[in-house]
Design a protein around this nucleic acid. Structure first.
Lengths: 206, 206
DNA sequence: CGACGCATGTGATTACGATCATAAGTATCG
DNA sequence: CGATACTTATGATCGTAATCACATGCGTCG
């Protein structure tokens, strides 16, 4: 659901650790962009707020994820990060990162490929939402997210969070998942969804 | 609608120019990622295809825009670029760019901030689509896209393309625009939309 | 010039997801 | 332990954008 992106170990030296309580806000929209954070442990929710759109979950970040990359291209954050559980994060100050980029071409390269990957990940999400039909949207998401061997999808957050990610109301998602279980298309357990029938992609050659 | 991002002039030296006829495909999804392109003149449409989602316009690129940045983080393209008009583009090979990044920290910095900005732009688009109501979605788009002085929005492509960008059917968008004109909320001319009443954002302080 | 393709536009109908309401299940915490 | 908050879940109803259908305008190209 979010891009797993790691900083090279050499830069970790100047990261500053911080501990967050559940529900504690790490940064807010329009707050001054300190820099980017690496999630050391715990789980955070990234979201955007808007008077019209309400709040929308962008992703759930877990240990190893980098968040707040947007800060590198802006003076303020454009999304909000809230701890879901007690979490530890490490802050890499923007200025420090950019300065280090000047010295370390390898770091630069990694940041570039990481951001490029993030761009593609967002485009994938966007395309998912272009699917009007709820069930096919869910189906596409499962296909994209499933382990290709086991066909198991591990949910990083709650079903409600997934609904938000998919651009559905939670009611619609619960119903859709129920229907898919009824029809034998998927199986569900606590945090996992198993795809039982992988719809044949007839248009692959088009 | 798309991020205006320019490469530093020094790197332009090793760009290779190419001319495209209308409807000519510059690159396809899953095609080997040659590198990124700068649009020198003309206009291109970036889109994604999917058996379920159909085709979805990501953006319209005009002179000065960079496209195919995703290629820096992947071996294949994840979207498709088609010329709308006769166009000229300049190819910067992936390897050349990454090699130059190693030598030129300033270029690295610019690429990083450019990609970070692109990430935020995509998130904005995503948030726009989270607005369920068509009219409010259009209204939000107009507010975001309007020149802050003149309140004029210049459409880079057709209304149909805009519908695709907004995640609406073209019928729905035509209707919504008509209604907004009827209600005196906007004025329309060939390629421009002028906002007449800028709705007061009552929830700003919430 | 006429034929074609495509954007633009409007009308009628409908399917589907949003919305509102409600309740059971579960975790946390003092 | 009971209280609280939240996720999970399902039912009923409704509104709206999708869908289908069709007409017109416009550019272009042989």
């Amino acid at each position: 659901m979010s891009v797993r992106s790691r900083l090279p170990s050499r830069i970790q030296a100047f990261g500053v650790e911080r501990t967050l309580r559940p529900n504690q806000v790490l940064f807010r929209m329009k707050g001054t962009a300190e820099g980017l954070f690496e999630v050391v442990s715990g789980k955070l929710r990234l979201l955007r707020r808007d008077a019209l759109a309400g709040e929308e979950t962008i992703s759930i970040a877990v240990a190893g994820d980098l968040i707040g990359q947007g800060s590198l291209g802006s003076d303020v954050y454009h999304c909000e990060a809230v701890a879901l559980t007690r979490s530890r994060v490490r802050l890499y100050r923007k200025a420090a990162v950019l300065a280090e980029v000047e010295r370390d071409p390898d770091l630069a390269r990694q940041l570039i490929t990481m951001l490029a990957a993030e761009v593609m990940s967002l485009r994938t999400c966007l395309q998912l939402r272009a699917i009007r039909n709820a069930r096919e949207r869910v189906r596409s998401f499962l296909k994209l997210s499933a382990d290709s061997e086991t066909l198991i999808v591990t949910l990083p957050g709650t079903v409600k969070d997934l609904a938000s990610y998919l651009g559905l109301t939670h009611e619609a998602l619960y119903r859709t998942l129920s229907a898919m279980v009824s029809d034998g298309e998927i199986r569900r357990s606590k945090n996992h969804i198993t795809i039982r029938e992988l719809a044949v992609d007839r248009k692959r050659t088009s």
